[in-house]
Nucleic acid binder design. Structure first.
Length: 945
RNA sequence: GCCCUGGUGGUGGAAUUGGUAGACACGCAGGACUUAAAAUCCUGUGGGCAGCAAUGUCCGUGCGGGUUCAAGUCCCGCCCGGGGCACCA
């Protein structure tokens, strides 16, 4: 890449009476313009260098703009991307916007502004803020999920999923046309298909009309239409997101919310459960992340067992992972929403049952699972144990969810804690089948007991009995072996406006895909963002849309984000979602950085989409992300002022009594803007002007002449006045300081509260670095002080020690210790009074990934013409850092008592002799003989007496 | 409730593989420079006890146990904070 010449820096550097103080604002603007004009960050899909793909989870452009928490991961990935570039890679590091979403729509409802308009505005703000920080994003590859040229391909991929089914024999997606061929030949007995409620012969299939065929095929498509429950708020006439529902009522207005069944689209992600599980073995994610995903998938094996119901036609099928405990079943629990409940409830129990069902209907799934209080109602019906004929009462309770297994469990109180508590609470007698393993106080989920009270299983070890029972129920024809997944198919539709329209047309109740050539199906403009009739989305309010019989649901937020990493590879392609040469070249994302909050949502969906696209032959890899690093969340550190209730008087925090009052008077805790508080000391003048002088008349009761604020760590949010805008910090200290300070705060993976206080230290470091290059004269001018002298051994040692440390830290993502390594390096070079170019240049190259602007400035000042970004990372040479001796810690009985400097060549006997002769060692040995001397070379010595 | 994760000085954190706990910073205290301030530089800074001091000594990584010559690090049990739990993104 050819750079325009840039002589400005050199001229000034050469001038003895120049003004070369560290003017970060000017320097940063200058180089940002330079990099942008030279296309320094533009990446080509063709290169001789090895490729490396660094990806950030792209942001939702919210109206609040970027706060200091957002860039944490971006800075880390930026440092790593730049480091990889220095190491000789062709690095792809793109950025874009996850631009569809609920907040923009909510904003539109409240303010009448079209989401496209507010989103555009928010993106402009984000972009400006991101540019301030000096990232090396290739903006020519930017994507926006709400751009028709992007969602055209989201819709296209949806159509691929719609036109595919999952072949269980091949364990991969295949065209639905292939399934039609199978049906024509085998009917519903076709090999490799999932179980279905439809049963038909090949002849019957051929005789079906089109609508009947499509109805059956819908049961197999990877993107399919079905029915599901949503949070329905009658008063608002709309479907609510989970976090818009608080304690069973709507967050806005507090209206009641109930479950309502609506037609929904789904992705058949469950068919991929095994491959999603297996794929985890081939990716470099944290163990915690893999665990979360496999727990979410929740694969378990057990049996489905059918119990007949006393005096009834219907039967009850339960799923259990512990068929061995079948003689310990003391009651059944079924999900209150199952239709079966109505069939089996006895007249005497009907009123109680109906009341309980009404209660459960108002409860969210989350509330039901989190509920500690045990509740439930007896239906009056009894199931019959198929092995001993015992009559088992059937209960309903909210802790059993309809969506998992068969929505019914056989309860074994001696072996399951929840069942045990339930039995205790309702005084249901408990059968002990595990003898002394059960103490009557707690359930014991052991698999190691030998069964008792278990009919034909008496004396059989539990593990063995599992198989025996499965075989027995299979022989009796009342059940079968069953692998179950906790994971459910992904709900893929929203009754909303601001999302991708489905390329689907409904004709007489049958869904037809649009022709791919007609994509994108653009989102029409609407006059009102209000919901449509009967819980439908706003699109149902548009006569032309409805007249064309188009689907009125839109896709959820995760649609666009499930494949965006592919679009970056070939963002301008208008023939394909991404060309095969591009996806073959860039292949998997080598490094993906983002929060754990996406652990089971976005990450699983994008893994599934990748697998489906791979199965259908569109890409050459079936895992999207090779390595995943989770960044922690930056929390806000809120500040409070305390107003005496009913007055305008504010009490300093230290004066408040332990019960939270002041002289017995109640205080109001008020969030105050953290930006007008220095540490915990309130800026009283700024406070008076804050919020249009709302507190202008405030009187303060001070301690030591100051007003001290209270603190609390909370989520960073505008409403808590604890957000800090990166722009302010960049203006005050510069982007390089800001970047390094964000890293210096702590490990990238860890969550921590933001505190601006320490930023001065990082800023001082950069100024100290600057002084290795320029000296301030008495008259305020600056002289450059670097020399061409050859470095000394001591200087080379400091340099090479740092090269190793910084390279290691970069490789293991430890950027906080990386920053501290730079600080130590500059401190040591300052102590050595080292101003040599041969030392300075490698330092600047290494620093350029952390603080690119100052590094580029000084690099050019030293006389280099090309960009420091294209330099090569210095190579560590061990010969400069070799030591001949080490200061060992000497312990007696494991307690460190002294240190001794011993040659690294010394043999074990030599060391033992030296140590035993040591005065302090002898003092602690107190005349006793040594029992053992442990000597670990280059580590420590321990004398055991 | 379930799954994951974290807890180390006044503060952010370091200790990479079980081997000198507190690197590097912030803050604080004292000092130098200055008419003064800012900036910069220097010194000290986990806690207790003893000592004028050098220093010595005991305690110390959320709490209680354990393994080990040796534990912030491994094991068991508990407490507290954070994230997720399927329509926020």
């Amino acid at each position: 890449m050819k750079h325009k010449s840039f002589s400005h820096a050199k001229e000034k550097a050469g001038s003895i009476h120049g003004f070369m103080e560290y003017n970060f604002n000017e320097i940063e603007k200058k180089w940002q313009r330079f990099w942008s004009e030279n296309g320094t960050y533009t990446v080509s899909n063709k290169s001789d260098k090895p490729k490396y793909y660094v990806l950030d989870m792209f942001p939702y452009p919210s109206g609040a703009g970027l706060h200091v928490g957002h860039p944490l991961g971006y800075i880390a990935s930026d440092i790593y991307a730049r480091y990889k570039r220095l190491k000789g890679f062709n690095v792809l590091h793109p950025m874009g916007y996850d631009a569809f979403g609920l907040p923009a729509e909510q904003y539109a409802i409240e303010n009448g502004i079209h989401p496209a308009v507010s989103t555009e505005k928010n993106i402009a703000t984000f972009r400006k803020q991101l540019d301030n920080i000096g990232f090396c994003f290739d903006w020519s590859r930017e994507v926006r999920t709400s751009d028709p040229q992007y969602y055209k391909w989201t819709q296209w991929i949806f159509l691929q999923l719609f036109e595919s089914y999952f072949d269980r024999q091949q364990q991969k997606a295949a065209p639905i046309s292939q399934l039609v061929v199978l049906f024509e030949q085998y009917g519903s007995a076709a090999p490799g298909i999932k179980p279905s409620t439809f049963s038909f012969t090949a002849e019957e299939w051929k005789a079906y009309n089109e609508a009947q065929k499509l109805d059956i095929l819908m049961d197999f498509r990877l993107a399919y239409c079905g029915y599901g429950e949503v949070n329905w708020c009658e008063a608002l006439g709309t479907v609510l997101a989970n976090d818009e529902v608080v304690n069973g009522v709507s967050e806005r207005g507090g209206y009641p919310v109930v479950k309502k069944k609506l037609r929904q689209w789904y992705l058949r992600i469950t068919e991929y459960a095994d491959r999603l599980l297996e794929g985890l073995q081939h990716v470099d994610f944290s163990e915690a992340m893999k665990e979360m995903q496999s727990n979410w998938i929740g694969k378990s094996s057990g049996a489905e067992i059918k119990f007949s119901i006393l005096n009834a036609q219907s039967s009850l099928t339960v799923y259990t992972t512990r068929p061995d405990t079948i003689f310990g079943v003391d009651f059944m629990v079924i999900a209150p929403e199952l239709d079966l409940v109505d069939q089996i409830k006895t007249p005497g129990q009907a009123a109680d049952v109906d009341a309980y069902i009404a209660y459960v209907k108002s409860r969210s799934e989350r509330e039901r699972m989190a509920e500690k209080k045990i509740s439930g109602v007896f239906t009056g019906a009894y199931a019959v144990n198929p092995f001993d004929g015992r009559e088992i009462p059937i209960w309903i309770s909210e802790y059993v969810l309809a969506g998992y297994g068969t929505g019914a469990i056989m309860a074994v109180p001696c072996g399951d804690e929840r069942d045990f508590k339930f039995a205790k609470h309702f005084n249901i007698p408990i059968t002990n089948i595990i003898g002394s393993h059960f103490n009557g106080e707690d359930a014991n989920a052991t698999k190691d007991a030998v069964l008792e009270n278990s009919g034909f299983l008496n004396g059989v070890p539990m593990r063995e009995a599992m198989e025996t029972v499965i075989r027995a129920v299979e022989e009796k024809g009342i059940g079968k072996r069953k692998v179950n997944y906790k994971m459910r198919d992904a709900a893929f539709s929203r009754q909303r406006y601001w999302g991708e329209p489905f390329p689907i047309q409904w004709k007489n109740g049958t869904a037809y895909p649009l022709d791919a050539a007609d994509l994108p199906l653009e989102l029409p403009t609407v006059d009102s963002y209000k919901p449509g009739p009967e819980g439908e989305g706003p699109l149902a309010n548009i006569p032309e849309w409805v007249a064309r019989e188009l689907e009125t649901n839109t896709m959820p937020g995760y649609a666009g984000s499930s494949w965006y990493f592919l679009r970056y590879m070939d963002p301008k392609n208008d023939q394909e979602f991404a060309g095969r040469p591009a996806t073959d070249y860039w292949n998997q994302v080598d490094l993906y950085i983002g929060g754990t909050e996406h652990a089971v949502g976005h990450l699983l969906y994008s893994r599934m989409w990748t697998k489906a696209l791979y199965d259908l032959g569109y890409i050459g890899f079936d895992e999207p992300f090779k390595r995943l690093v989770n960044q922690g969340m930056i929390q806000g550190s809120s500040r409070f002022v305390y107003r005496i209730n009913g007055t305008n008087e504010f009490v300093s925090q230290g004066l408040i009594a332990t019960d939270g009052t002041y002289n017995g008077r109640v205080l109001d805790n008020i969030h105050v803007d953290v930006n007008i508080v220095d540490g915990t000391v309130l800026d009283q003048e700024a406070f008076a002007k804050w919020r249009n002088s709302e507190f202008a008349g405030a009187a303060f009761i001070l301690e030591d002449g100051k007003y001290i604020c209270g603190t609390e760590v909370e989520k960073m949010s505008k409403s808590k006045f604890n957000t800090v805008n990166p722009d302010d910090l960049v203006n005050k200290y510069g982007a390089d300081t800001f970047r390094m300070y964000e890293m210096f705060l702590g490990p990238v993976e860890m969550s921590k509260p933001w505190d601006t206080k320490g930023i001065e230290g990082v800023h001082r470091f950069l100024k100290k670095l600057w002084r290795l290059f320029y000296k301030e004269n008495a008259d305020g001018t600056f002289t450059h002080i670097w020399t061409d002298e050859a470095p000394t051994a001591a200087e080379l040692k400091v340099l090479h020690k740092s090269i190793k440390k910084i390279e290691d830290d970069n490789e293991r993502f430890s950027f906080n210790t990386g920053v501290s390594a730079f600080m130590i390096l500059v401190n040591e070079l300052t102590d050595l009074k080292c101003h040599k170019k041969q030392v300075a240049e490698p330092v600047l190259i290494m620093l350029s990934s952390y603080a690119p602007h100052i590094a580029e400035e000084l690099w050019h000042a030293l006389g280099n013409d090309s960009s420091v970004l294209d330099a090569a990372f210095p190579v560590f040479e061990e010969k400069y850092t070799k030591e001949s001796e080490k200061e060992y810690p000497i312990s007696i009985n494991g307690k460190m008592r002294t240190t001794m400097t011993i040659s690294l060549e010394a043999s074990q006997p030599d060391v033992e002799q030296l140590v035993l002769n040591n005065e302090i060692v002898q003092k602690w040995m107190d005349g006793k003989p040594p029992k053992k001397i442990i000597y670990v070379k280059n580590k420590m010595v321990n004398v055991v007496v």
